[in-house]
Nucleic acid binder design. Sequence first.
DNA 1: CCCCAACCGTA
DNA 2: GTACGGTTGGGGG
Length: 998
Amino acid sequence: MDGAGAPRYSIAMKKGDHLFLVDGSGFIFRAFHALPPLTRKSDGLPVGAVSGFCNMLWKLLTDARDTSVGVTPTHFAVIFDYSAKTFRKDLYNAYKANRSEPPEDLVPQFGLIREATRAFNLPCIETEGYEADDIIATYARQAEAIGADVTIISSDKDLMQLVTPNVHMYDSMKDKQIGIPEVIEKWGVPPEKMIDLQAMVGDSVDNVPGIPGIGPKTAAQLLEEFGDLDTLLARANEIKQVKRRENIIANAELARLSRRLVQLRTDAPLDMPLDALVLEPQDGPKLIAFLKAMEFGTLTRRVAEACDCDAGAIEPAQVKVEWGPAARGPDLDAGASAAAPVRAANGTGAADIYGDNRPAELAKARAEAFATARIDKSCYVTIDDVEDLDDWIRAARETGIVAFEAEGTSIDPMLSEIVGISLALADNTHNPSGLDVRAAYVPLGHKTGSDDLLGNGRADNQLTAGEVLGRLKPLLEDTSVLKVGHNLKYAYLLLKRYEIEIKAYDDVMLMSYVLEAGKGGHSLDSLSDRWLGHMPASFKDVAGTGKSSVSFDMVEIDRATVYAAEKADLALRLAMVLKPWLTAEHLTRVYERLERPLVCTLARMEERGITVDRQILSRLSGELAQKAAAIEDEIYRIAGERFTIGSPKQLGDILFGKMGLPGGAKTKTGQWSTSAQVLEDLAASGHEFPRKIVDWRQLTKLKSTYTDALPGYIHPQTRRVHTSYSLASTTTGRLSSVEPNLQNIPIRTAEGRKIRTAFISTPGNKLVSADYSQIELRVLAHVADIPQLRQAFADGIDIHAMTASEMFGVPVEGMPSEIRRRAKAINFGIIYGISAFGLANQLSIERSEASEYIKKYFERFPGIRDYMDSTKEFAREHGYVETIFGRRAYYPDIRSSNPQVRSFNERAAINAPIQGSAADIIRRAMVRMEPALQAAKLSARMLLQVHDELIFEVEDGEIDKTLPVIITTMEQAAMPAIAMKVPLKVDARAAANWDEAH
DNA sequence: CCCCAACCGTA
DNA sequence: GTACGGTTGGGGG
């Protein structure tokens, strides 16, 4: 029904006509989740999905009226779900029972999107008791019968069963046509078999049961073999795999029911006949009035231009919105922007990316415009002569901003050789809104596929590395030209090895990390998907996968151009969107002080690496092997058979089956746990066998993870180990270390510590380890402002003993170690967002006793409870928490109705400001360390970071002068931004290896 | 060849 | 109870 009730005329549909059917409901959910979540009107009304919807419709209609595009609809309708109650619910009561309530930000947008449809002068259709999909199916089949073509604007797999030679689907967000070949490619079956495939696979979102254990791949294979579901069910006994056969036979009825659920009706009652869907002309003023009411500046302007209307003369429409205060976003700065008039983001060419003085408006307009802007890969060019390259460099200097990406032979920048460089520039010569980006790829190290005795030949039509890098070096090192990239540390390290040191840069990965830590990944793929509605080509697409994959120098230059240029293009677009957003969210300082400078700081640390003594590791490996073998023999002897000790499943069978030991905990898959905790408990109750398993595990763990693996990371040329620090992979702001992970080198056991002796200084130098003492408890004392804790740290007394003394009334002097141990566990528990369950586990005590401890603790330190409560409340209200330097950590699930999920998020939210503030402090120290050492004319080199510890290599003669510089820089790191209420304390010492230095 | 679960190393 | 990454076994392709 068209709620607006505007009279529509109708023209009989005929052969050759083209009907567009937009899956409105599908689009709403997709747009809501795909688009930047922050899009709001100035009064706080969330309109992200509305914005995406309007942009999509406008683009479809503009293309449609542009006859050169080829596909021109004659009829057009937008279809919505009427309500959740449909005939399917009568078939199967659990249908869509899993559906949770729509997000509260989405609720007010349902009505608005229907309003938008009417503003576009399009029929808005919904029918009680039927899903949008059934209406679409009915229209599609009717139109097809007349001989018209149909395009369904959706990417929902449920609609793919409708695809025929005359019925296509179009994914407007990915700009992708879906026809018969695409369905086959994605699902392995042609569209007419989609119903049977879905019936077997089921759908957890809609709660379509399907056959358990059958996924898309298996289903496609079975349909290939048997033709259709009925034949399969009739001949199921021919299936060879036992489990699968039994499964299918047992669930045949479920499959038939599922088929009835997924099969779309083509006989839904239609309130509006096909002929009435004729596409009417745009009513410019009506549409503009609506867009103005929504404050979609960019789109308003575009529509006004296209319709030749004066937008300024049109009053915003009165749009009635049903949304209560609950729908209002909590992070809205209503006071600042409520009264602000909407201003179109005019003239936002590249030159003023950073210069707008209304950041929130600019950020919003940018995100809105870029979310739907088309990415035209056909304009990417390959640069193969120096004049062209010089032109691009000149243009980059004029614009002042260039995005770039360095392609190499390996993902490890220390082992990679440069293969090419892509560049992207904002080009506002054609489009004053600054949306056009042009990009190019400069190949310089591509090889031909044919190899002869001399190896692979050099590919034709490319400049030499010398020519290219010689020209790019001045640009990349020019502090007045901003270089934009994604994960710039890679390019920084790669180019550093070619004597280029990138200066003046922005990294969109880090912008995203600052804006959205905890909300999702920060890879170029996820950022493009989230902010630009575009999925870039994957590396696998160009280089192949698995064994048949090739390094980038073996990729054909044309293909490489599209892949590499796209990355630079996307990085530039993302910077144009995210940089204003940083300003709008007041996160620029976090980005500029805590993130950006670490790119080159960390790159230099990684480049230096650390010496690992191969002999020591080899000797240790031998010792571990011998000890493990001896224990292995005893294990087999006691067990009475040989088995795979490393298999928890087999071990569980031996322990709790054959040997009949009492089982303790279960894993989440229902197996008996064989964790160290369980085995220790068994050992404590007098069984010697589990002890041996624990010992064996320790030895084999040390061997496989450390002594055997580390030598493989020694670089062939530098002879050192170069870890890679990930700047954007934790929610709290900590770094992580990979390939190898040098942040988990053993220390707790004597056996494990030996591995640290293999980390050595070069002759004439020592390793210096400097670590913060109790930094997280100090941060806690600061943020929660606990008088006793502050006093204890000020006086330098044992913090755990003080806690024990407060709680249990035992004097610090002569305190029993068990009492102190418990207090220590409680202190750590507090930092981790304590639960009675967790504390009980940690201390092996009853949960009731743990509850008593916690109660007592809160009585003695009421400020801690206040801190925890207010942190939880802040997180619930804002969806994120903050460190003392303003870094955010998002916890989107903190409002979950599942108590387990919610509690977990609450504990994480309590921990994040503490862990994250400590992480920020050491980041600040690291950024200042190199200048501080330089100022003191010291040659110490910072090599590693392990969360609260920094490791340096220092010349023997400089150690005495260096230690105070390191200590002071670390202890003063919070200043002047934050005056800590407790002093920070750093311990440092020098030795020939890491074990003795720590 | 890829993915997941279980386990365990660090702060 | 927080935050990570790596190895192994095992299931499936």
